[in-house]
Amino acid sequence: MTRACSAEALVDAIFILFDRLGGHTYGEAVTQLDHALQTAHHARSAGAPDALVAAALLHDIGHLLQKQGEDAADRGIDAKHERIGAAWLAQGFGLEVTDPVRLHVEAKRYLAKREPGYLEALSGASQQSLELQGGPMSQAEADAFEAEPGFDVAVRLRRFDELGKVEGVQLAPIAAYRDLLMSLASRG
């Protein structure tokens, strides 16, 4: 797909990815699809703007795109899913969607540095990946991250991300997000 791909083609590709690979896990108790749906649900329930709801739904799409395998973290590999996902989504979505996706790992590193108890509350898989992603930020990195445009939105996405790991939750299917994704992709 090129940068000029149609909104419909991109959204169709997203749905195909989730249909084909959304049942995979990545060390968490829920599947990729369940995690995406829960994260988007929490964003929508909190009254987040549509772009943040879309970013919440798509924040881990890089896990479905990366070529390292779903056990990459177990093999000591940071697959850089946030960068892969943001770059792929940039084919049709604007920065309002892609920047939170790109920055959600940095937001985890930031919160692990700045928020007492955050690191200890992370799931085992998130703690494992955090180490591969550079661990908690240094003071200088945290200060620089706070100055990053979109810092606050990335932190907000990260908080929705942490809530989206509950087994057995039944939510609206991914199809319920089609119109929202189409609207944002056609503006991208």
Rank of each mutant, 00 (worst) to 15 (best):
C5T: 15
A7G: 12
V11E: 07
A13D: 14
I14L: 15
I14R: 04
I14W: 07
I14V: 15
I14M: 13
L17I: 10
L17P: 10
D19Q: 09
R20D: 13
L21Y: 14
L21I: 05
G22I: 12
H24T: 12
T25C: 11
Y26N: 10
E28F: 08
E28C: 08
D34T: 01
A36W: 02
L37N: 01
L37S: 04
L37G: 03
Q38R: 01
T39M: 04
H41M: 03
R44H: 12
R44I: 07
A48L: 04
P49K: 07
D50E: 12
L52R: 02
L57S: 08
H59V: 11
I61V: 15
G62Y: 06
H63R: 14
H63A: 08
H63W: 14
H63T: 13
L64N: 09
L64A: 09
L65K: 05
Q66S: 10
K67C: 14
K67D: 15
G69S: 10
G69D: 10
E70K: 06
E70A: 12
D74C: 04
D74L: 14
R75W: 03
R75I: 04
G76F: 06
D78Q: 03
A79L: 11
K80N: 14
K80S: 11
R83M: 13
R83A: 15
W88V: 10
L89G: 05
L89P: 08
A90L: 09
Q91T: 06
F93K: 01
F93L: 07
G94Y: 04
G94R: 05
E96Q: 14
V97W: 09
V97T: 06
D99P: 00
P100K: 10
H104C: 04
V105I: 13
E106T: 04
A107V: 07
K108V: 12
A112N: 01
K113W: 08
R114G: 01
R114A: 15
R114I: 08
E115L: 13
E115A: 14
P116Q: 03
P116M: 00
Y118E: 10
E120F: 04
A121V: 04
A121W: 00
L122R: 06
S123C: 02
E131G: 12
P136C: 03
M137C: 02
Q139H: 03
A140C: 00
E141V: 00
D143G: 00
F145D: 02
E146L: 04
E146N: 06
A147Q: 15
A147T: 15
P149H: 02
F151M: 03
D152I: 14
D152Q: 14
A154S: 15
A154H: 10
R158Q: 14
R158G: 05
F160W: 06
D161R: 00
D161I: 01
G164N: 12
K165R: 13
K165S: 08
G168Q: 02
Q170A: 15
A172G: 08
P173I: 09
I174A: 06
A176E: 11
R178M: 08
L181D: 09
L181E: 06
S183G: 15
S183I: 07
L184P: 09
G188C: 01
